[in-house]
Design a binder for these strands. Structure first.
Lengths: 195, 195
DNA sequence: TGCCGGTTTTGACTATTGTCAATTTTGCCA
DNA sequence: TGGCAAAATTGACAATAGTCAAAACCGGCA
């Protein structure tokens, strides 16, 4: 095993621990069945129409999920270091993705294929809880966002975002933040300038 | 077992089959650990602040999830006959619910407690997939709705809703549909009249 | 049938947000 | 460091949606 590799896996195992502390045998299988990548900004992990076959963990970097409708780009979510990322709906049912996933920064990540993840679930049944937890967390996050879209004005949504995700304003362009909030770039600019 | 009861359970077992065909032993445990209810229109299954301790299956009836913010009522989802219903975020992590669940019609339902469901998962580990599938389906549904909120105008959201859920216009008041779409009742009225 | 309460529609006006076009600012790198 | 392309801001105007108040509609029931 290459020098430095255990360090990277230490990071993902700490994140797993929030859901389930893995045994050494489970960790060994995860290491054996996963891959490490160093990808450049701009690279796509998934494009709409493709089946998303891998679950990613971001050691470092930033990533955006987005969907294109009527020639327009709608940002759906953003994730940064130490997060699990995949096109959830596509990955869990292995059907074509409606969303694209694009790196916003050069990133270091670990990925595992759907097949290999199922193999781990099968070999170590108690790890099933991880799959469930990941979907549950994604669901809770999305629920909060949907209610914000429904009940808050554009200004309140922006302020809510700044509080909840301070990273955004450092690492995401205003164009993408605007599309995430469901408003035009110009409106966001006016909100920021205090009208 | 009372006459008619097996018929009701036949309905829920058909719905389970879309996720996992249950064995006779699994069905027997589900019957033993669940309850049948006949509830009146207006009854609440969960109120905000309470932990939602049960997963419901609607044999017949209609139900609405909603959240109250700044004294306003925001409809989050609707479900009708033959659907599984719970306050997902609250149920899966057994924390206080942010949403209320209210019956829109007199309804017949089957419910199982969180503890009893975990007991079934534990006795029959392969049934774990049901829990995951339920969250996954809820997630996919919510994802579609969020993108609609973000990318469609009010008029398009209303037309999309009519296509996707024809039941809505028969069984849900315009007040609730408007709050679901994130628009005022008057705006919905004008959209319907063709401006 | 006729009244009642709740639901839905309509009107007039205001507020918010979008669009298009023109600048200005920023970040990168040759 | 200078120059370029992308990102962000600004202005003028149009389109969309909200608010408040009043009227019309509708369903249940005495």
């Amino acid at each position: 095993m290459a020098k430095g590799v255990p360090d990277l896996y230490d990071i993902v195992f700490i994140s797993f621990e929030k859901m389930l502390a893995l045994t050494d045998a489970e960790k060994a299988d995860y290491i054996r069945l996963s891959e490490i990548h160093h990808y450049k900004k701009g690279r796509h992990l998934v494009k709409a129409g493709q089946v998303c076959s891998r679950m990613y963990f971001f050691i470092s970097g930033a990533v955006r999920g987005y969907s294109v409708r009527s020639h327009k780009d709608y940002s759906l979510w953003f994730e940064f270091d130490r997060c699990f990322v995949t096109s959830m709906a596509s990955f869990v049912s292995q059907t074509p993705s409606h969303e694209n996933i694009e790196l916003l920064e050069d990133s270091t990540l670990i990925s595992i294929s759907h097949n290999n993840l199922l193999a781990i679930y099968s070999t170590h049944p108690r790890t099933n809880v991880i799959g469930r937890r990941l979907v549950e967390m994604a669901f809770i996050e999305l629920e909060e966002r949907t209610l914000a879209m429904q009940s808050l004005t554009a200004t309140d949504r922006y302020e809510h975002l700044l509080e909840r995700y301070p990273q955004f304003s450092q690492r995401v362009s205003l164009k993408h933040i605007a599309s995430f909030l469901g408003i035009s770039q110009e409106t966001l600019s006016r909100i920021r300038s205090g009208k």
